[in-house]
Nucleic acid binder design. Structure first.
Length: 269
DNA sequence: ATGCTAACCTGCGCGC
DNA sequence: TGCGCGCAGGTTAGCA
């Protein structure tokens, strides 16, 4: 489900309901997510939430004694619901808040994660991450430098969190289309000038998707329950076999590292 | 070091 | 209508 814009949308949606509220109860109905939810998570009980932050697709909820690290995996979502609403089949975690609301985690596939991070602790998950795409640290120079000598497909390269975080399958396909680069092109053979175009499109597309509340696929909704509207702007993702919006050539599909990739043979080289 | 594969899960849509 | 198969927004671990 969630790529970076969806996580950012979720953060913005739930943040006003969480900040300065105390976590009165932490209810774990299904501890077996991607990893077992650690017992330390209960250290957050009775603590007031100070603020939220996002790193890559990780959503962090901070208190003075430590933080929760939330990852939504493929099918996870966080919602604010009123107390007393019966949990559904895949509602694995509830945080009951002092304002009477409940932060509810829903995740059918359970690829998501809920972890605990103590004050001054670091997580190996966060330490290995590359730059945020919407900062100046992420640019053509970085992509070009890091890709020299690499034979892997450029699509796999930009989806690698060590190079840049937050570019998932949807936006990888879309940004490569907009940049006119074939997804299977070896990353090491792409010029700095072309990485310049690619980096600009990655930034633009993620920014735009955030502004529109994320991409709604299936039943994704932001923390405020509103759907995202970016899906209607997808040019190649999910459009294999259909005509290219630019030139009407039938869009091709191929698999790169197990992920479906769609491109136009005429517009992308 | 690099790069691929399998694995973690459930649900849905499609073809038979 | 039912069943089996393949596929789905992500990421890590493990192997060659």
């Amino acid at each position: 489900m969630p790529e970076l814009p969806e996580v950012e949308t979720t953060k913005r949606g739930i943040e006003p309901w969480l900040v300065n509220q105390q976590i009165n109860e932490i209810i774990i109905r299904q501890p077996q997510l991607r990893w077992l939810v650690p017992d330390e998570i209960h250290e957050l009980k009775n603590e007031p939430i100070t603020h939220l932050s996002r790193r890559a697709k990780y959503l962090l909820v901070h208190t003075k004694v430590g933080s929760a690290i939330w990852h939504l995996g493929m099918s996870g979502s966080l919602r604010i619901v009123e107390q007393g609403i019966e949990p559904g089949k895949h509602d694995h975690v509830d945080w009951v808040l002092s304002n009477g609301m409940v932060l509810r985690y829903h995740d059918p596939r359970r690829f998501g994660a809920l972890l605990f991070l103590g004050v001054n602790q670091t997580s190996p998950l966060l330490e290995k991450l590359g730059p945020e795409p919407l900062t100046d640290e992420f640019n053509a120079e970085l992509l070009w430098q890091r890709s020299r000598g690499k034979s892997k497909a450029v699509k796999a390269f930009i989806m690698d969190n060590a190079n840049v975080v937050g570019v998932g399958n949807i936006y990888a396909n879309e940004s490569l289309f907009k940049a006119g680069i074939r997804p299977q092109a070896p990353a090491g053979k792409i010029s700095k000038a072309r990485y310049q175009v690619l980096a600009e499109h990655i930034k633009e597309i993620l920014q735009k998707a955030i502004e529109q509340g994320g991409t709604t696929l299936k039943d994704f909704v932001g923390g405020d329950g509103k759907p995202g509207y970016f899906a209607q702007e997808l040019l190649v993702y999910g459009r294999g076999g259909l005509p290219c919006v630019n030139c009407a050539t039938i869009l091709k599909e191929l698999r790169i590292e197990q992920r479906n990739s769609v491109y136009c043979t005429k517009c992308q080289h």
